[in-house]
């Protein structure tokens, strides 16, 4: 009897330990490759090499506060994110509303729209360098064909056009994603509220404003959250398309940090700047999550 009880308590203990054993490998990997690097980064952001050796200092953060390039890159990132997010949202919502009905060829349409968003970002950069090349690109070539003077349309060589171009490329790649999420959200809305609105004699705009939008709000907030996080850290396509140029015109915060670390080997300063980026993304995500929970 005692023996079997001991046996069953050993079994119980194993059962109790099991979840921890199953989670442990994942935790070890994430501690070693997410949390440890973060602590490492904090350390180097607070250290500076001096002739007298390594000293602890707030020097990097002080330098950051008076670095005009850093501020400009920050402003670029926000303007870029706001502009791209607005366009992606409006276009994506429009397409989702258009397609939220049974029409022929919907599957084909959906599948084709997947193409831009699944492309490797580097390939997106290549595609658009080919499209926007002032001499043989398809855009200027086509414009010339219909008789438009393209001499001033140098795209990535002109500061203002280059900024518009990087926004347009992001809109091209990610509108389909916004569309797909909002379409999924629309299709999850039940029919009853619409029937009620019909009986009440609401106009189409009223129905959209008071039925569709509130019920779509969770999907909207999630897709805006995911897009904002990605937009604030944008790097790949811009690195290929303009490398932040011409001059400093399309320099984004991630590119500036990359340059500080891997061109000038100023790792401490790069780490300090990356914490500002991390803080900003955190604040933004907290705001979204609050909004999401407020309504739920």
């Amino acid at each position: 009897m005692p023996r079997s009880r001991r046996f069953s308590s050993a079994l119980n203990r194993r059962e109790l330990l099991l979840p921890y054993l199953l989670v442990a490998p994942a935790l070890v990997v994430l501690l070693a490759l997410s949390i440890y690097p973060l602590l490492y980064s904090i350390t180097i952001s607070l250290q500076q090499e001096t002739p007298a050796g390594v000293v602890w200092t707030l020097g990097h953060f002080k330098r950051l506060a008076s670095d005009n390039f850093f501020r400009t890159a920050m402003v670029h990132t926000f303007v870029f994110a706001a502009a791209a997010l607005t366009c992606e949202f409006l276009l994506g919502l429009g397409l989702a509303l258009l397609l939220n009905q049974q029409i022929r060829g919907r599957g084909l349409f959906r599948a084709s729209l997947l193409v831009p968003m699944m492309l490797p970002t580097v390939v997106v950069g290549v595609v658009w360098r080919l499209m926007l090349n002032p001499n043989f690109g398809a855009i200027n070539g086509t414009l010339k064909q219909v008789g438009i003077n393209t001499e001033s349309l140098t795209w990535t060589a002109s500061p203002r056009l280059a900024f518009l171009a990087v926004i347009a490329v992001d809109v091209w790649q990610w509108t389909p994603f916004v569309f797909l999420v909002l379409l999924a959200g629309l299709q999850a809305i039940p029919q009853e509220p619409y029937e009620a609105a019909l009986i009440d004699g609401s106009s189409r705009w009223q129905t959209f404003r008071h039925v569709t939008l509130p019920l779509l709000k969770p999907a909207i907030l999630i897709v805006l959250l995911l897009r904002t996080m990605d937009l604030l850290r944008v790097f790949d396509q811009i690195f290929i398309l303009t490398e932040g140029g011409p001059g400093f015109a399309t320099e984004m915060i991630s590119l500036y940090i990359y340059r500080a670390a891997f061109r000038f080997f100023d790792f401490g300063y790069a780490a300090a700047m990356s914490f500002v980026l991390l803080a900003v993304t955190n604040v933004v995500s907290v705001v979204y999550i609050r909004l999401l929970q407020a309504k739920a």
Binding site: L33, S34, Y36, P37, L38, Y40, S41, I44, M229, L232, R233, F235, S254, I257, Y258, A261, F267, A270, A271, S274, F275, L277, L278, T281, N282, S285
Partner: peptide
């Protein structure tokens, strides 16, 4: 949710 560049430097 960490931006990639934040971990890229220490990694």
């Amino acid at each position: 949710m960490f931006p990639a560049i934040v971990t890229a430097v220490p990694l």
